[in-house]
Design a protein around this nucleic acid. Structure first.
Lengths: 354, 354
DNA sequence: CTGTTAGCGCTTTCAG
DNA sequence: CTGAAAGCGCTAACAG
C-alpha cells in the first residue's frame, strides 16, 4: 500500500484539494455534507497529513526541539517527561537530542535543531554553556528558546529553574534550628570547574547560574549568616553525584578530622553513600550527624534511616518550559519562571542534644 | 535576521541552487573551486538546510519516531538513551512520544509518528498491544517498524528484547543450587490482566510475550522442573513494581503463612520493599529467606543486605533496535534480537543451612 | 462556500 | 561539470 496524499483524497471524494485541506484544518467554512464525505474518505483511505510538507508551506512546524544532557539521570528524565506531556497536550511534537554532557555534542544538537525545522527550543545546557555560537545560530533563525534548569546563563532568554538557593537555605536553616552548627556541605559537580578555591571564586558571580551547586552554596551561606556563622572552607568538600562518590567523599572528609554535626548533600545518592561511610565508623545518624539529601528520590524512603531531603519538581520544569515556549510562539511576552522546592522531613535529621 | 535559504546562498555565491544542493549533499561532481566558494558562503551566511523541505522532496526523512510508555521509569529511559545515542551516531534525529501506558494515548502517538514524516519507528508497546490498527496505519505507509522490549507481540515485525525467560531461569536455578526449594515469586504487573488464575492461563500462550513477568514465570518454572518441582500457586503473588507494592505484597504473602525460603522479585524496588516487611517480622535475609531482585539498579548496591539481582541492559535494547531499524532502512533483512541478562550475586542470597 | 493556482525550500532529471 | 525547470504535499490568496 502506498502513501495516500491530499490529492488522492480529493479525487476520491470528488472535491478539490483545498476543500480537503480546509477540512483537516477544521476550517469552519465548509459545507457539512462535503465535510462528512471528506472525513469518510480520509477514514476509508487511511489518509494522514504529511507534517513536513505542511511545515515547508507554512514556514513553521509543530515540532519542539529539546536538548538535554542525558535521560539516564532521573531528574532530566523528569524534565523531559514534563516537556513531552505538555507538548502533547498543546498539540506539539517533541524532538529530543541528548548532548551527553559534552560540549561538542551539545553544539551538534543545537545545529540539528536549527535544521530540523523546529518551531521552538527547550535548551537544558550542560554546566558550562560553551555552545553559545551554536545557540545563536538557532536564535538568529527566529526560533524562540527557553532555557531549562539553569539560571542566568543566556541573557535575554527566559529561564525556567528550581530555586536552588532557597532549597539549600531552607534545609540549612532547618538544621540550624535543630541546634546544628557545624554543617558540612558536599558540593556536587558533574565536572568540577577546578579546585575548591576556584569554586569559591565563582560563588556570587555570574558564572554561578551554570552550577546548581553554587546556587545552593549561596543559600547555605545565607542561612549560616543569619545565625552569625561564616562559610568555612574545611566544611566544604567537592563531590560527584553518585553513591560511590558520596562514600568516597565522606571517607576523605572524615580523614580531615574536621568537627561536624550535620551534612548537606548534592543528592540522595550521595547522602546514602556518605551514610554508609559513617556507618562503618559507627557515627550515628541522625544523633551524632544529621544528614539532608536532595531530590527526594525514591531512595530517600528506602535509605536507613529514611532521608530528610529537598524535593524538587523537575517534571514541572519541563512542563512550564514548554508552556512558556508555546506562549511566546503565540506572540506572548514571557519571563523567567522560578519553581519552589520543599523540604521533606524524615528520620535522618534530629535535634542536637549533646 | 531572517532565515537564509538555499537560493540566497546560490545568489550570494553566484552559482545555481543545484550546485549548492550538490555541495551540501557532498556530491563529488562539483568543481573544488566552486565547492569552496559555496562552503564559505554557507559559513558566512549561517545557512542551515531545511530538513522538512528536504524530506518532502525526497519522500523520506532522517527522523526516527520512538513511542515509549514513559521516561520516568529508569528502564525505559535507558532504552531511549540507547536509541538516541545510536541514532545520533548514524545520523538520524529522534522524535519521542510518550504513551503514558494508556492505550488511547498510545494510538495517538502512533498516528503522530505516521504524520510526522518519520522514516522508521521504534515501538515500545504498553503491555496490551491494543493499538494494532494504528500500528497498521504506520506500517501501511511503508515505514519500517522495530518492536522494542516485547517479544512476539506483532507477527512479521522484528523484536528486540531481553531474554526474561533465561534471566528468571538463571536466578531460580542459582537459588535451587543453594538448597532453596520453596521459592516464592512476586509477579510484577503494571496493570494485572486479572486474577492469579487468569495469569496462569496466559502462561505458555501467545499472550505471554506482552508480559515480561510471564516470560520470567516460564523460566522460573523451567528451573523448578529441572529439580522435579512444580509451580505452586501458593508461592505466587501478584505485585506491582514499586517499593510500597513490594512491602504490601510481602505483608500479604506472610499472612498466608505459606512456607518459603527464597523469593524472586519483579525488580529491586519490590525486593527492597519485601525485605523491609520481612525485617519487621525479624525474618533474616539471606539466611532464613534469600532474596533476588531484578534490574540491578543503583538500589541493589544500596539496600541492606546488598541485593543479588538480574542485570538487564535496556540501553542495548534501544541501541540495537535503532541499529536494526537503520539496517532495514538500508534494505537489509533483519530478524529478532534477544539480549542476554546476567545474574549479579551479592549478599541477599546464601546457602540454606537449616 | 468551493476550486484554481502559485509557490514554501529542496532535490533531481535533463540539457547544455 | 553546471544550470534550468519540474514537482514533492501542502496551504493560502484569489476568483468565481
Amino acid at each position: 500500500m502506498q502513501k495516500v496524499t491530499i490529492s488522492d483524497v480529493a479525487k476520491a471524494a470528488n472535491v478539490s484539494v483545498s476543500t480537503v485541506s480546509r477540512v483537516i484544518n477544521s476550517n469552519e467554512t465548509v459545507n457539512s455534507e462535503l465535510r462528512d464525505r471528506v472525513l469518510a474518505t480520509i477514514e476509508r483511505m487511511g489518509y494522514i497529513p504529511n507534517a513536513s510538507a505542511r511545515s515547508v508551506r507554512v514556514g513553521s512546524s509543530n515540532l519542539i526541539g529539546i536538548v538535554i544532557p542525558t535521560v539516564r539521570i532521573a531528574t532530566f528524565a523528569e524534565v523531559l517527561q514534563g516537556a513531552m506531556d505538555a507538548a502533547m497536550q498543546l498539540g506539539y511534537r517533541v524532538n529530543v537530542y541528548s548532548s551527553g554532557g559534552k560540549e561538542q555534542q551539545d553544539s551538534w544538537c543545537l545545529d540539528s535543531v536549527a535544521s530540523s525545522g523546529a518551531c521552538g527550543l527547550i535548551y537544558c545546557p550542560i554546566a558550562s554553556v560553551g555552545a553559545q555560537s551554536h545557540l545563536e545560530q538557532v536564535r538568529s533563525r527566529g526560533i524562540p528558546i527557553v532555557i531549562a534548569f539553569r539560571k542566568n546563563v543566556v541573557p535575554g532568554l527566559p529561564h525556567v529553574y528550581m530555586d536552588d538557593e532557597m532549597g539549600a537555605y531552607t534545609a540549612t536553616k532547618y538544621l540550624l534550628q535543630r541546634g546544628r552548627r557545624r554543617i558540612a556541605f558536599f558540593a556536587g559537580f558533574w565536572s568540577p570547574p577546578g579546585s575548591l578555591e576556584t569554586v569559591l571564586k565563582l560563588l556570587h558571580t555570574d558564572g554561578q547560574g551554570a552550577y546548581t551547586t553554587l546556587e545552593r552554596m549561596a543559600g547555605y551561606q545565607r542561612a549560616l549568616q543569619e545565625y552569625g556563622l561564616d562559610l568555612e572552607k574545611e566544611l566544604l568538600t567537592i563531590s560527584g553525584f553518585d553513591y560511590p562518590s558520596g562514600y568516597q567523599s565522606m571517607k576523605k572528609f572524615l580523614s580531615t578530622l574536621t568537627d561536624f554535626d550535620a551534612i548537606l548533600c548534592g543528592n540522595d545518592l550521595v547522602a546514602a553513600g556518605a551514610m554508609a561511610a559513617m556507618q562503618e565508623q559507627n557515627i550515628s545518624v541522625p544523633e551524632r550527624v544529621s544528614v539532608v539529601g536532595y531530590d527526594d528520590s525514591e531512595l530517600a524512603q528506602i535509605a536507613h534511616p529514611q532521608l530528610t531531603s529537598v524535593r524538587q519538581n523537575p517534571y514541572n520544569i519541563g512542563k512550564r518550559a514548554v508552556e512558556i515556549l508555546v506562549q511566546s510562539l503565540r506572540g506572548g511576552v514571557v519571563g523567567d519562571v522560578r519553581l519552589p522546592s520543599e523540604l521533606i522531613i524524615r528520620a535522618s535529621t534530629a535535634v542536637k542534644d549533646f
